[in-house]
Amino acid sequence: MTEYKEWIGIVAIACALLAGVAFGGSYIGTLVVWIAIAAVMASSLRFVLLIGELNFASAAFFGIGAYCTGYIVNHADLPFVLTLALSGGLALVVSIVFGGITLKVKGPYFLLIGFAFTEALRIFYTRMEALGGNSGLVGIFPPAWLDAHYQYFTTVLCFLLILGLLGIERSHLGKIFIAIRDNENVVRSVGNRVFFTKVVCFAIASTVAGLAGSLHAFANNVISPLDFGFMLSIFALAYLKVGGEDSPLGPVMGAALLVCVASYAQSLGGNEHILYGLAIVLSVLFMPKGLAGLADLLRRKKESVA
């Protein structure tokens, strides 16, 4: 039972969110889509953390997915599903090239290159006429047949992606990821291909981020270069840190909580940056295992009392 508690938890949150879409009116529906996409981004960030690397390029791949979708919708009339697949595919291809170069380095180097890559892409978008330059792209709507159900579609797809990542994490491949984080020389010494495995991990996470970006573009209808700066990676980090990175439930819980609080605070005229910044700082200093860790602690206390 405890083996499956994360699966159950994630599915339960997904059901709650879907109920929100069904009964909560249009504002709640929009909020749910934000939460679902934020949860995917945070899960993608966590996925690369399995090999011990902090992937600041996740915002870049989110942007690649979104821009690919925006471009296709504006310039080529392709079917919706194909658009989605191509957006994920582009993120996959770019991530294999980028990862193939940068995963030779580790830790701060890898992190800062990802950061620079995100910023370089943002500048690239502003320079490209075909991508709308500074003002970005507009008119990115889901097809008519899906429009009424788009919030359901996005939420379900996002959670399928999250469950897919969890499935990989629990597979043998996922165990090699964690082993690499623990001690990559041991993993290498028995014949596992460390570098190749790292690129695979990075490519999977980036493809998922690209798909999330595509879903975001369709949900938002409008995209601009400013949406895809490094702040986006820091936001994803905030969800992850508040939720707790040890458990796959963490990013989902963190995204749900922070997006709701931020939305409420903004309606009161609060500053989103201060809120997210404070959430990260307080979590790091006082709740290093995040909400998931806290829940675990409470459960264990209860068990030890019983």
């Binding site: 830790g107 940056h273 201060i274 979590s283």
Partner: peptide, 27 residues
């Protein structure tokens, strides 16, 4: 000081500080 030489933790903290300061300075 509390995260002595914990690279990931310190980094996350500094990223949080970026958001916090930027928001505060803007306010």
């Amino acid at each position: 000081k509390r995260l002595e030489r914990d690279m990931t933790g310190s980094f996350i903290l500094s990223a949080g500080l970026v958001l916090l300061f930027e928001g505060l300075m803007l306010e």
